[in-house]
Structure formats: structure tokens, C-alpha cells
Amino acid sequence: MTSTHAAAPPNGDRRTAKQKIAVRLEPWLYSAPVLILIVAIMLVPLALGVSYAFRDIRLLNPFSGAFVGLKHFRELAGDGAFRGALVNTLWWTFSSVILQFLFGLILALLLNQPFKGRALAQALCFLPWAVPSFLSGLDWAWMFNPVVGPIPHWLYALGIMSEPSNILSDPETAMWGPIVANVWWGIPFFAITMLAALQAIPKDLYEAAEIDGAGPIERFRSITVPFLAPTMAISILLRTVWIANFADLIIVMTNGGPADRTQIVASYIFTQAFRRLDFGYASAIALVLLVLLLAYSMLIVILRQTMLSRH
């Protein structure tokens, strides 16, 4: 290897500045449509919405629009309905997510076994996801109604209820109505993601574990759970945030009642915006919810990072 070139090694890249910029720009060109859409349709309105939180915006009042500073937030601090809604949101979100996840995981495990008619069973079990949220809320409201629905009569026959009444009109039980509807509607989401993750686990791992003498429970603990964990974590996180913001079922089924016992923050925002037409106040609440959800997501992400770095 004699080196005649040693004095000045030729430059590796002699592209013109223009060509280099084109290369740099390439990923941005692909992302541009999505970015433009999101910025124009979501980010700019979001910023406007955030600004509304500090202004007096009432839709039917032509004199509104003035800057009011932190007035809405001071009001919010003393708003008992809002505090109640916060507690209800926690209740609504976590019971929905936990139940959806649990039943979704079980369904995924059931469907991961080969059996005759599996394709059909899978299609039917996932069907609720195709139903628009509005319609499923309506449907479940009917089913909980003792006049036109069977559920109160079944509960009565089972001895759970002393008389066939509507759980949606009882402040003690009302929240369970939307939660059940939400679980019915949301199981497929978890089942689909978990099933996909399950099918990506190499089968020979199970065979190896079985030969090593691991029973079904041990196999589930030491193979299935670790393989599913990343998918579980991310889908639970996304779902929690999504459900906390998801007011359709509650608005259709109970409209926050009775006595605000099913009012969650998202439905409270809706009420403020569309019943009282007070967009300023509604935006202030939404901003608080956004901050809380961001804090929650950060917490989860940080937890996940520390857990990953420990391993």
C-alpha cells in the first residue's frame, strides 16, 4: 500500500450546497403535509383556545372578548363543580382503562389459541369498535332503561337490585352506566393491539420454556408479560389520556347528571362551551386538563425510562 495521495486526501463529499440542502430537506418534505395540517388545524386553534382562557369569550355576547387575565382560573379554584368533575374524571378514566385493558388482554389471550371459527369469533368480538360513540351511548342508555331495556330486569332477577330501576338515574350507580358502555366499546382496541403483540412472540420460546419445565402460569409470567410490556405501557398511556378527554358517552347517556355525579372534566368543558356558551371559561378548564394530562404523561415516560435504565 504505497500512498501517493497521503498529502491531501480527496474530499469525501463534493456535493454543492444546494444538493446538500436537498438531502437535509428530504425527511421534512415527506412530513410536510402532516405538519402543515396539524399546525393549521390543531396547533393554531389550540393556541387561540389557550388565549381564550385569559379572555372573556361568550358566543352570544357581542361585547365580550376583553382580556381578563387570570379571572377564569381564580373562578375555577372556587368552582365546586369543577373539583367534583376532577374526582369523577379519575374514577371514570381509571376504571374504564383498567377494565378495558383486563378484558382486552383476556380476549387477546383467548383469540391467540387456534380453534375452529377463530376468525369469525375475532371479527364479532371486535365489532363494537365500529359503532360510533354517539350511537353506542344511545344504545346502552336504552338498555339500562327499565322501560325499553332488559338490563334492570336481569339485575332484579339476579337479586342485585331490589326493583328494576335505571342505574343511570341513581347518583350512587350512575357512573357505572357510561363505564360499562365504554368498556364494551373499548375492549377491541386493547384486544387488537395485544393480539398483534402476542403474535409477534416467537413460538419456540414457549416450547423451550415448556421443555425447561415451566408451567402455563410461569410461561405467562416469564415470557408473555415481558414481551407485551412495551406495547401495554404505550397503549395504556395513550388510552388513559384519550379516555380522560372522551366525553361522548357521558354526554349522550347522562349529560353529567344526576346531580353532577357523572360530570367529568371533559363533559364539564362541553357543558360550559355549548350550554352556557362561555368559551373563555371552557378554555380555561381545558387548559388545566391539558396541563394535568401532560404532567401525567411525563410521569409515565420518566417512570418507564428509569425502569428501562435499571435493567
Partner: peptide, 17 residues
């Protein structure tokens, strides 16, 4: 892959770029 430094030629034509 990009070439960090040096030159590759096919039939005496520089092809780095």
C-alpha cells in the same frame, strides 16, 4: 452509504456524489 473522506471511481469517473 456516504463517503466520509476519499474517493471511489468507476472507470476513472468519480462517483462519490
Amino acid at each position: 452509504e456516504d463517503i466520509t473522506a476519499g474517493e471511489i471511481r468507476i472507470d476513472d469517473r468519480r462517483i462519490n456524489e
